[in-house]
Write a protein that binds this DNA or RNA. Sequence first.
RNA 1: GUCCCGUUCGUCUAGGGGUCUAGGACACCGCCCUUUCACGGCGGCAACACGAGUUCGAAUCUCGUACGGGAUGCCA
Length: 456
Amino acid sequence: MNVVTRFAPSPTGFLHIGGARTALFNWLFARRHGGKYLLRIEDTDRQRSTAEAVDAIHDGLSWLGLEGDEPAISQSARAARHAEVAADLVARGAAYHCYLTEDELAALRDEARAAGVPVRSPWRDRDDAPDGPFVVRMRMPDSGETTIDDSVQGHVTVQNRTLDDMVILRADGTPTYMLAVVVDDHDMGVTHVIRGDDHLNNAFRQTMVYHGMGWDVPVFAHIPLIHGADGAKLSKRHGALGVDAYRGMGFLPDALANYLLRLGWSHGDDEIISRENAIAWFDLAQVGKSPARFDLDKLSDVNSHYLRSLDADSLWDLIAPHIDATSPQARARVVALKPLLAERARTHLDIAGSIGYLLHDGAPMMQEDAAGLLDDEARTRLVKLVGDLPNAPWKGESLATFLKEWLTANGLKMKDIGLPLRAALTGTRQSPSITDVMAALGPHETEKRIGETCKI
RNA sequence: GUCCCGUUCGUCUAGGGGUCUAGGACACCGCCCUUUCACGGCGGCAACACGAGUUCGAAUCUCGUACGGGAUGCCA
């Protein structure tokens, strides 16, 4: 089968985390089957749609590597086609003009609700056509049932009489979502509709539009929504941040995608899954049916894995905007220590905030808890150490060997000098292995720092 | 109200009738490694919502209840 999927966000805000996951699943499914993945901006509600939101969505998608295979389609640009289909539906008897006033409708709705039945307009059975505003409603079947074989939810059946005569064309002639989504999916050749399960019920109503037009109904896959850490539906108030917010927190796009993929989908016990494997393994049948909670701790952990596999130059590019290096050696030092730095961080922001001693030359900014380490005895030892420092080679491993021998020769233990040495060189109590730091700093800078921080 | 969906450790999940005294990951706790912080290794804590039924046997199948979620808009 020639697979075509689409991601169809409505531009009422940023690309939120749930939308990103829906996009990811669509992208993955299309890639998995060698199909196409398209984008459509659902801006039928002109009031709530903004150009900024469209940009934000594109930004989020491109950051995640989920841009469409073709330029995005704007739903509002297709209003004429939607109206045309609505008229066609009326001509085919699948829909009808409804002249109900707002008050009449409200009364009808109350009545229907009290009776536990769906809204059906009396106009579905009338032949007259008064001269006034009307909407176009679907004429839902009174009997029978409709079954959807959903790729995630399984077989779901609904009695046709529970379906309401939904409006497909507003009084002003513009289409509603229920119509537009079907027409666009059909015209775009969408074969698989993968979306949030809040649309599961809508799928039955939309199926009637497909039937009314004699179109093939696509395969549906309704994936569960993501909930906040507190279990509540993710809303803007509940941390449903835009992907840009996670980007701002220092998460890598591949890490976010990996985390999102594992939310609701699994491949045995695999946790860290490359894009390549994700494409090879992705399968709608493995998508769970229950909503998952968003967990920052787990995201952080996934991110740390990706951070460790990042190459040093990329890391530098990532942190560069967040630091103000004054030493010409800054980049070389960071690059040299990258693996050790990444091992100690969850995000590149953690690294950016803890490497001041690599960015500037001379005595490091001394943190309070580190300053206390440099008492007279420690400084005396460090000064002696500087005097005995070897000329070469300045590599972490050989420096470690040298240090051990030096300690033995002076009747000292590593604990006698390790922490003070770190404090003198970095101004902190924590850093990568101090001999690796010395190697990154080089002999000149090492001597200079000890000289400045250990004046007696 | 009516209809639809869901429910395994705190969280993400494996599990598709016996191999489950329920596995993995994150978080948490302990130990080891160790110049610090980490990483890594080892170990621990911790779950099949509840009740019936089907079956020799159920986390796995069926029904019910409870609790969540969704739909019921001239929003998407």
